[in-house]
Amino acid sequence: MKWFDYAAPRTVAEAAGILASHPGALPLAGGTDLLGQLRSRVRETDLVVDVKRIPELNEISWDAARGLTLGAAVPCYRISAHPVIRRAYPALADVAALIGGVQIQGRASIGGNLCNAAPSADAVPVLIALGAVCLVSGPGASREVRVENFCTAPRRHVLEPGEILVAFQLPPPGPGAGSYYLRFIPRNEMDIAVAGAGVAVTLDDGHIRSARIALASVAPTPLFVEEAGEWLAGKPVEPQSLAAAADLARKAARPITDMRGTAEYRRHLCAVLTRRALEAAIKRAKEERS
């Protein structure tokens, strides 16, 4: 690991100023990805900017009308333990408890998981499925970016120099909602998704009112399969419907062959995981309604 300087700003404006004036600077939230990358020299920088001390990045707030505002640097353990998130966004609570072990969850954040921009990021399909929007601040005006539009390539995203991801805004789930994330890993823990599926559904008397489906590890970025969710809208809750949506997810996948699996195997997993995740989300939605 090379030497680097360290800054710990206390406000969004201060952080944005430092990041704008040091184009090579890298923001650090939990550091669970970044420090490993610096140690293995996958990334190098002269300046690390710790954003954990900025209040807005550490807040969780809930409003029945606006939904959930989740600070980008909130560590996973707070998310998985949060009663509102556990009730209203169960897939988000699940994924916060899935990433890493207890020590990692004490540091790792959902904002960091997104900004690391790995195709395999477990939290990102969930954020997409839940319709999350990124609140971005920078030297200019603040802006909003839908999570599915945030990543542009492996390790690349839309933030401009000086811009900082402050929080996520998640819409309220509405009645009859259920969400689920399912990843496939060869082991039962400590692994990177070979493929993953995050789904959110709302039910309406035996029919699917709406659905959003997103996939991990099967494209250069986390993949929003909008057509699969749209196809499901209005369909009865039947195995054929789910299988057809799963097949759309399989067709949307653009995986590669690597040490974690072949492209053919990953496409196959997309269908299996999407179907299983839909079944689990629907089960949750039914429990929510009953």
Binding site: R187, M190, D191, R260
Partner: peptide, 8 residues
């Protein structure tokens, strides 16, 4: 360790 995948 992540990718070599010994059983845990």
């Amino acid at each position: 360790w992540l990718d070599y995948r010994m059983p845990t």
